[in-house]
């Protein structure tokens, strides 16, 4: 019978294994050029995939309207990120915008 410690250890080892996987594999094996080129798009693709649902899904349903305050704050943050390329300013602008909008409209 498995107890919680067994489950924790197995999931922990699997997670570690996933994180270590390609770091070990790519040591011994030279990937084809196509794979090397593909890797360049990993950050932008994964991070965009994390961001987009946060902005346009409200409780699991699509909401692209002025009533979606997180979307509005996200657009402001996008403009600030584009202009300043600065993480702190982007967070400050996005959070202020969201809190102000929530104060007045939520």
């Amino acid at each position: 019978m498995m107890n919680i410690w067994h489950i924790m250890l197995i999931v922990g080892l699997l997670t570690f294994g996933i994180r270590l996987s390609f770091i070990v594999i790519l040591d011994r094996w030279q990937p084809p050029k196509l794979v090397e080129r593909a890797l360049r798009f990993v950050p932008v693709a994964v991070l965009s995939a994390i961001i987009a649902p946060e902005l346009v899904l409200v409780g699991g349903t699509l909401d692209i309207s002025l009533g979606n305050l997180r979307l509005l704050a996200g657009i402001v943050a996008t403009l600030v990120a584009w202009q300043t390329k600065n993480i702190v300013w982007t967070i400050v602008a996005g959070m202020s915008m969201l809190l102000i909008l929530q104060h007045f409209f939520a």
């Binding site: 994390i50 961001i51 946060e54 996200g74 943050a77 993480i87 982007t90 967070i91 959070m95 969201l98």
Partner: peptide, 21 residues
Amino acid sequence: SSWSLDFTLALTFIAIVIPSL
């Protein structure tokens, strides 16, 4: 939860992705 601090994660990723486009 009204502080919406969870939103900072999306904002951070925006700050990282946008300049890389």
